[in-house]
Design a binder for these strands. Sequence first.
DNA 1: GACATTGTGTATCGTGTAGTACACACTACT
DNA 2: AGTAGTGTGTACTACACGATACACAATGTC
Lengths: 116, 116
Amino acid sequence: MSLGNFLREHRQALRKGDRSYSLRRVAERVGIEPSYLSKVERDLGSPPSEETLVRLAGELGQDPDVVLALAGKVSGDLKDTIRRRPVLFGQLIRELRDLPDHAVLRLVREVRDGDW
Amino acid sequence: MSLGNFLREHRQALRKGDRSYSLRRVAERVGIEPSYLSKVERDLGSPPSEETLVRLAGELGQDPDVVLALAGKVSGDLKDTIRRRPVLFGQLIRELRDLPDHAVLRLVREVRDGDW
DNA sequence: GACATTGTGTATCGTGTAGTACACACTACT
DNA sequence: AGTAGTGTGTACTACACGATACACAATGTC
């Protein structure tokens, strides 16, 4: 699924119940030109900036991290966190790269619930 | 410690034992102009690209992730890994953000040694 | 003293990013 | 039939990124 398809599909889904989710209206609320959003939804040209993508995700009720990922980006706050301890996080993430979802999820839970 | 200071100090340290670590010679081996490396070592202008930084780190025997971090960047392969599972890794990294080094390190070891 | 080497200042450049502006054709109402 | 709203095509733009090119003064070396 491309970024454009994702955005278009979710916007159109919302539109079924609310006429205000036309491309033009959404563009207006997000603060960009309609023609630009049109291009974004068709994956033409480079994807919007992180800020614009986050506002777009919010408008469509989608997870910002997912939208950013579809645009080939990683949230700035995650990058900051890694940058503060590059060796440690580098090791950890590379270690987890090939592990299945459930293993990573188990780790998340362990950290959240455990006495760290 | 800034990127420029870091690079300059490590280059000059190497230079004590090896005359070939002049700014010009290093720049040549890394494949950039001396005047550009000079600016980088004084933190003028925007830092080099990821590729150039990695070559620079290699030349100076330093950890690429550390050099990238000093330049305000995160290695492309880590970004790719996060982008493949944005929600999972987003949760994990945000969970670990405020934990002390030893806790994160313990996690790294657990994953590496455990039966995952 | 000559010659090479060193680091730096100034000017310039091509490419990519992240958009705007506006006209156009089509569809939906009423 | 007229008006409002819809998505799109084309052209353009400001700015940042990631450098290069080359001259220059200072320092080292033989």
